[in-house]
Design a protein around this nucleic acid. Structure first.
Length: 933
RNA sequence: GCCGUGGUGGCGGAAUAGGUAUACGCGCAGGACUUAAAAUCCUGUGGUCGAAUAGACCUUGCGGGUUCGAGUCCCGCCCUCGGCACCA
């Protein structure tokens, strides 16, 4: 066997790109199919096989759809802005912009070498000003719509790195990079009001064709819960405290109330003098102070161990007039519900732990399945499940669900409570005190606020439409659209720095500006936006930015920030909104995305943010659909050495060496063969040689067949004829078609291997029986031809999405277009047939023309259901459910005939001799003789 | 703790309207070719007993159940990996 020349891969990659085979006309395409893959962070050393695994899986689907007749748009880009990339730049000691240039080149080189059918004329990168101009424009649209707002919020702060950290960078309360304990700091931040969309985000999930696990994760993250806020009078005062609960049925079991340390009632208690002793006051004060200062690390170290302090005040339970002592404890979170909890220690483990520690009473009001109705004294007795109400006045005897409804009705009727749905989902904090991101396009103006507040005479209720900077109130003025983009300045001192502001705050030329409204001195926002904002809309970006001039070389299609700023600046002002709308109007046929594939790790954040933004666009009238991705499938994880690939584990595998050694086709197929795509797989390089062998066998089979035809001229019979060959072909077409559709690539490849085994055997047999040699005459019996033309073509087509290069090469040779360079075939032919040089294989000029007939645009083979079924079956014969024999049989046998056949078997006769039996017959499958019945 | 995955030969993994368990590949063993090696090709390969290509028994994480028949369905556990987690 000879090695197939996988060096042909480069040639075809270039032919595809220069021929624009994979660059559909975005305006005129008639059957658009938007096949999108989550674009990568180019932050690490380069692409690893885990990335390639995901991209290849997406590409195969796209290629399959193309052959099914769709105009497939499969774009690629880089999610290069943001903390990941910046941290990598810090690590290697390069400026992020410089690093981006290196990463970009490297990533595109690697992606190009994988042979994916990307539209290289429409790449994008989030750090390109032409891209982030839109990110900023989107921010402004949301701001104008009231969906972006400023508020004080606690952020993670690392005292060693002196920088603000994103939640993702805090691992077990410690800084991801240096390991120091993270502190919380209260700072003014920008938020997106995603919570306004909680209900829609939840409801729309039902309609989406998405991986089930992702839908579940989102549902859980949104965390909708029905409940009621119950008001409690604070004894001896006019104050009220509202406690939200989802279990009002247990309210007769309430024995105390707990406030979060940040709860407003706590500061009221501290500021206004109630009848609390000074000692008590001090106690509360110091507890609150300690609790607020507590680091994440300390909280975790404490675990579930409860701390708290009694305020000396009582809340009155309207239901029974009982006085509930009011405590303060940090196990109650201000961000959830009302920040105050009515504790039912008998039916909530946390409340129980607290009650036990501080000696508070515990009441049983529910009896569960176990029937235990004794007093609750041990944690294991805490009854959180459903059950029957006891000790609860008018609720007694009801089950918990009915009791919940009844008491809610009652509380509302009395005016003591109000039904309220809460969500786990929080507003999206989008500002980062970092450098490597799109500057938030906002200007702060003291003068404007002065004018405005005088006009209004009153400050706004929320106090949110001004920004507090250096103790001064500033009006928030969005950057006028004509001034977009706000270019990220080239800064030497770009590393994260101490204090509340990011590196941009040090750049005077950036900060100082004039107010676009009143013209007085003003300052720019110095925070940049979250990477997730960049990636939340990029699926539109490919269409909007798609009118750039196409450039072929993938490493130069992109402009890096800074290099491009001049060009952008020189552009004439355009009406961005009009451009946005026009782009989508002309290319809107591609939307929403038809197939989106990506990692399950983005189940919640990216996919939720993207959905939110799309809904906001819909409400703004910018798009005509609410959901960005019609179909989403999460791919599995590629494991190496028993663990997920990561830098820290040191098990990163780069595709480069494998591509150099075996070719991209072999690696693609091998990756897809590792396991079910949606489940992941185990990468070990031991098996890749096997895949290489498989492709070599395909190569040699087809080349051998070409040789046969070359000597004997083209076959007369184009169709495959023998029944068994037909059956194998149609069966395989069906299996591969169905498996690709369901992304079960591993079994699709297995089916192709099985067919190959069959074809090779057939060829061997035919050569044997006909004793064909190249220098002999063609046998008169055409059916002795090793392979049929149709068979050969079908094989290549089915393999094409997996191994696009080798199949393209063989396809081109099959269509007589192959002779552009000395090939194995020609050498072999000359060797074998002496001087013979077949006329239909006359050497042609090198041919890389655009209009070559690519296999990747050939129609996908169809199968005939009749031929998929075999005419013969194996009848399994069981006795008492145990396999005893297998018999060849015709299809469609009736029970009587099957019985007769089975009884003719000696083996079976032996078992049935002299016994009574019952027969269970499953047509075309098995017959079971049951003796014991 | 909660939610979600998955548990099948030496290894990666096939097989679910309940019906031939271990497809396909890797590895391994033997053979052919070769001066030799590599490559390639052929044969074999779940386990135990057995001379056997006779036959029997066992086998899909563990324990029960339903069924003529269970990897697949039901009940009760154990473990892996992933995500969330003091969310009232």
């Amino acid at each position: 066997m000879q090695d197939y020349p996988f060096k042909i891969e480069r040639k075809w990659q270039e032919a595809w790109t220069s021929g624009k085979l994979f660059s559909p006309d975005l305006v005129k395409a008639r059957t658009p199919f938007y096949n999108l893959m989550m674009f990568p962070y180019p932050s690490a050393e380069g692409l690893h096989v885990g990335n390639m695994y995901a991209f290849t899986g997406s590409d195969i689907y796209g290629r399959f759809k193309r052959m099914q007749g769709f105009d497939v748009f499969e774009p690629i880009g880089l999610d290069g802005f943001g903390i990941h990339s910046e941290n990598y730049a810090i690590k290697v000691g390069r400026h992020p912009r410089q690093q981006a240039r290196i990463s970009q080149k490297n990533f595109y080189r690697q992606l190009y070498a994988t042979g994916n059918a990307y539209d290289w004329t429409r790449t994008l990168a989030t750090y390109d000003p032409a891209y982030y101009k839109w990110t900023q424009w989107i921010f402004i649209q949301l701001f104008k719509k009231g969906l972006a707002y400023r508020a004080r919020a606690p952020v993670n702060f690392c005292p060693f790195d002196k920088t603000v950290l994103a939640d993702e960078q805090v691992v077990d309360g410690r800084c991801e990079s240096c390991g120091s304990q993270v502190e919380k700091r209260d700072l003014e931040q920008w938020f997106f009001r995603i919570t306004d969309y909680a209900e829609r985000l939840l409801k729309n999930l039902e309609k989406l064709d998405w991986s089930k696990r992702v839908k579940i994760a989102q549902r859980q993250w949104i965390g909708k819960k029905e409940g009621i806020t119950i008001g409690y009078q604070v004894a001896g005062s006019r104050l009220q405290v509202g406690c939200w609960t989802s279990r009002p049925d247990t309210n007769f079991g309430a024995t105390f109330v707990v406030l979060a340390p940040e709860h407003e009632l706590v500061s009221e208690i501290l500021n206004i003098k109630y009848q609390i002793s000074n000692i008590k006051l001090k106690e509360v004060k110091s507890y609150v102070k300690r609790a607020k200062k507590k680091t994440e690390q300390e909280r975790i170290a404490e675990g579930r161990d409860k701390t708290g302090v009694f305020t000396g005040l009582y809340a009155v339970n309207n239901l029974n007039g009982e006085k509930l002592p009011i405590w303060v404890s940090d196990f109650v979170l201000m961000e959830f519900g009302t920040g105050a909890v009515v504790a039912v220690p008998g039916h909530d483990r946390r409340d129980f732990e607290f009650a036990q520690k501080f000696g508070l009473p515990i009441k049983r009001v529910v009896v569960g399945k176990d029937g235990d109705d004794s007093p609750i004294t041990k944690i294991d007795q805490v009854q959180e499940e459903e059950g029957t109400m006891v000790n609860s006045d008018f609720l007694n005897g009801l089950d918990t669900h009915k009791a919940t409804v009844k008491i809610m009705d009652y509380l509302e009727e009395k005016g003591w409570g109000k039904r309220k749905t809460t969500y786990h989902l929080r507003d999206w904090l989008i500002s980062r005190q970092r450098y490597w991101g799109p500057p938030i396009p906002v200007i702060y103006c003291v003068n404007c606020w002065k004018v405005k507040s005088e006009k209004l005479k009153v400050k706004s209720e929320e106090g949110r439409d001004f920004a507090m900077i250096d103790g001064k109130e500033h009006a928030i003025i969005p950057v006028p659209e004509k001034d977009l983009p706000v270019i990220l300045p080239d800064v030497k001192d770009w590393k994260p720095r101490s204090g509340a502001r990011g590196p941009l705050a040090q750049v005077e030329s950036f900060v100082k500006t004039l107010c676009p409204e009143c013209g007085t001195a003003a300052r720019r926002e110095t925070d940049v936006s979250d990477t997730f904002l960049d990636s939340a809309w990029y699926y539109l970006g490919y269409l909007i930015l798609g009118n750039q001039k196409s450039k072929i070389n993938p490493s130069t299609t992109l402009r890096i920030d800074g290099e491009q700023s001049r060009t952008i600046k020189n552009q004439k002002f355009r009406n961005w909104e009009l451009e946005f709308r026009n782009s989508l109007a002309r290319r809107g046929q591609w939307l929403p995305v038809d197939m989106y594939i990506g990692g399950a790790e983005h189940s919640v954040l990216h996919l939720l943010y993207s959905r939110f933004l799309t809904m906001a666009f819909y409400d703004l009238g910018l798009v005509s659909f609410e959901e960005p991705f019609r179909k989403f499938r999460a791919h599995g994880l590629l494991i190496a050495q028993g663990a997920k690939m990561s830098k820290s584990k040191g098990n990163i595998v780069s595709p480069d060496d494998y591509i150099a050694k075996y070719g991209a086709d072999a690696l693609r197929c091998y990756l897809m063969f590792c396991g079910r795509f949606q489940q992941g797989g185990d990468f070990s390089d031991a098996g890749i040689a096997g895949m290489h062998r498989f492709l070599k066998r395909v190569w040699n089979l087809v080349i051998g067949q070409l040789g046969y035809w070359a000597v004997r001229s083209a076959p007369k019979n184009l169709l495959t004829q023998e029944p068994i060959s037909l059956h194998m072909m149609h069966k395989t077409i069906r299996r591969v078609t169905e498996d690709i559709e369901s992304l079960d690539y591993n079994t699709a490849i297995a089916a192709l291997m099985e067919w190959l085994n069959f074809l090779e055997q057939k060829v061997n047999i035919k050569y044997q029986i006909s004793n064909i040699k190249y220098d002999q005459k063609r046998p008169s019996d055409i059916s002795l031809e090793p392979l049929g033309r149709e068979e050969t073509e079908t094989y290549l087509k089915l393999l094409a999405p997996f191994a696009p290069h080798i199949t393209e090469e063989l396809w081109s040779r099959l269509s007589g277009n192959w002779a552009s360079r000395p090939s194995a075939l020609r050498l072999r032919l000359e060797e074998q047939s002496g001087k013979t040089r077949p006329k239909n294989l006359r050497a042609q000029r090198p041919n890389d023309r655009i209009d070559f007939q690519s296999i990747h645009t050939q129609p996908w083979p169809k199968y005939d259901p009749k031929l998929v079924e075999s005419k013969k079956i194996t009848l399994v014969v069981q006795v008492d459910g145990k396999l005893r024999d297998r018999l060849e049989a015709k299809k469609g046998l009736g029970e009587k005939d099957a019985c007769k056949l089975a009884l003719s078997s000696q083996k079976i006769k032996k078992y049935l001799a002299g016994a009574n039996y019952k027969v269970v017959y499953i047509k075309d499958r098995l017959i079971n003789f049951v003796l014991k019945f």
